[in-house]
Design a binder for these strands. Structure first.
Lengths: 203, 203, 203, 203
DNA sequence: GATGAATGAGCCTTCATTCAT
DNA sequence: TATGAATGAAGGCTCATTCAT
């Protein structure tokens, strides 16, 4: 229901989304009231509803924004780079991001979205798409590594990719729950997973 | 000085929790109203509030119930069993449970709780404890396997345990989102992770 | 959405409707707020919404009540009474009712409903049914009068009935607008209409 | 010191009123939002508020416009015409108008105004004036007919005029509610009313 | 005058919770 | 204890109106 013209929209929309993200990360989607977003943004109810049909649309927009931001963490490596190094770079980017306040905020909202995806089809699609993008990128890198004999060819590339993604998801939970989280240990696990699967001579 | 036998009391509580679990799994904690629980249980508002102080306490009770049920999946293997086989048994029990309607329900609530843990300390404690129990059990089995030279000694046992737990968590997400979920593929990944790390002669 | 059991309902429903009718007659459907009804009834928002799904359902219930009350004004005359006297009795009952505060209230709401009927199908049905009942009763009496040679047989009974109903409707407007309204003059018009149409010898 | 010619100003007002009338006839005064009028007119909020103080003033202007348009239906017959023919001409003009889309729109708004008149003095005055004009014209014609011995002298002219007006009002309701409406039947009723009251020899 | 984004009071409605029976 | 009608605070949302451009 944008009563506002497309030109002016973008900036104001971003402002509202920024405020909403702060509130949602702090209190969750359901405990955050529109009043909270109003106060955080310094805008008015009418203004917010001029840009978003309802609270649900606001949540979905946050979801979309989240996933497009996350996609930016996946730098596109050139095809002639070392695929394992590229994988490692992705992991590092992800883990580093998780150390920043903005990254934590992003992950908290991410976990909220995992739950929201259980009963909102639109969000489920965004969330699963958001998982599939890195999944495929990683799988692709693993295959390249296999072709370059850097990874054991018998390994099921997609399965390994899933494991790596699951590892990220598990890290997110640990991190947002404030559990002891050792970024270096994570890297070690990651390396063990990647480099531990290098080809070995038959016993 | 309860006139009613504690058994009856406990039974009523269980009845309420059962109804609440159905509702929460279906609609989430926040979209479920007490009225929903009333209808699902066939009881009355007053009755429910006679057993639980408020909705939050009900959610916390569901959380506690959830985690104690999950703990039951972790059968205690005897110390002289094959630790890798025990690990595998745990994985199978978990994956099998996830195929049943009750298991799915449990996992959906689990994901809800992951989000709830972000801002409810009581639930966070339950959730993290609920993760740590299997984590430690798995770590223990890995150590036994290492002592029995079934697993490469250089592997960091806790890190591997975390990876396995993360893999479970990742599977839960895949499953509850209705993504294609291949139980056998999961077992294969699991096996690769476990058996792929068996000691090998130096190259 | 009656959360309340059918037994208890009736009395409370009537109480709410009574309060709503006072408000609606005073301020109209659209300017009356639920808060007004709350204050007039001395009840609470929740209570009102336990008996009526929303404001619209409340309006429709008022409409139903209105029309069933109006129907009571149409006493059922025995088939062997003088039909013209019966007609007159209906007219008198109607005009007398319009002199009472409750009658005025009823007519004000009636006019509101005429407008509401323009875009609410449910109300349109009630309103048109509410008009057709007296219309048919009157037509029936006119036919009896014609059979008894009390009214010119050439007169189109339904057309005359419509005219009489229109006369009532016109009176309602005059009355609710606070225009000079002479009940006796109305009776005279009515009599002229009825008795002026008695058979006469051909000129 | 308007820079804009009064004609332009008037044209803009008319434009707004035209749009408002369409909206009001479609959705009623209360369900029509200023936004609706903005969209229907293609103008802006500021522009509308430059011509009308508030929504109420807009409604009142619509009311005024309505009644002046209705007055145009009452052609002024010359004093030496046949008064009954003139009466008939008025009835026909009215009934014909009610067959056109613009006429229906006018009548729908008319019914809205009947209700609005219950609590807006300014509108009540316009509405009652709007009824009194034809009432007096009709009464005048009846008196002329009586003087010309075309209508029974004992008939109370004003009462008959009221009946005729009521008949019109009743027709409006029938028409706007989409009830079966037979224009010819209406004319017959009308004729019966007029010509049925011609003088007759005493029995 | 015209524009249209922004305002914010206030409306409808929900729902966790209470309490007389 | 159990019931369920009633409560009322609070939330989401609308829309008449304003005002900087």
């Amino acid at each position: 229901m944008p009563k506002v013209k497309p030109e002016t929209q973008a900036a104001r929309r971003a402002e509202i989304l920024e405020a909403a993200e702060i509130c949602f990360a702090r209190d969750g989607f359901h405990k955050t009231t529109i009043q909270d977003v109003i106060e955080e943004s310094g805008l008015s109810a009418g203004c917010i509803y001029g840009h978003f049909r309802d609270k649900e649309e606001l949540i979905e927009a946050i979801s979309a924004r989240r996933h497009s931001r996350d996609a930016e963490l996946l730098t596109s490596p050139s095809e002639d780079s070392n695929p394992l190094e590229s994988l490692r770079a992705i992991a590092l980017a992800f883990l580093n991001d998780m150390q920043t306040p903005a990254g934590i905020r992003a992950r908290r909202i991410g976990v909220e979205l995992w739950a929201e995806a259980l009963r909102n089809d639109s969000i489920r699609k965004q969330v699963t798409d958001g998982v599939n993008v890195p999944l495929e990128r990683i799988e692709h890198l693993i295959r390249r590594a296999q072709r370059a004999s850097l990874v054991e060819k018998k390994i099921h590339a997609r399965a390994l990719a899933r494991t790596i993604v699951a590892l990220f998801q598990g890290s997110v939970l640990q991190r947002v729950w404030g559990e002891p989280f050792d970024s270096r240990a994570m890297i070690k696990i990651f390396d063990a997973l990647i480099y531990g699967l290098t080809p070995r001579p038959p016993r």
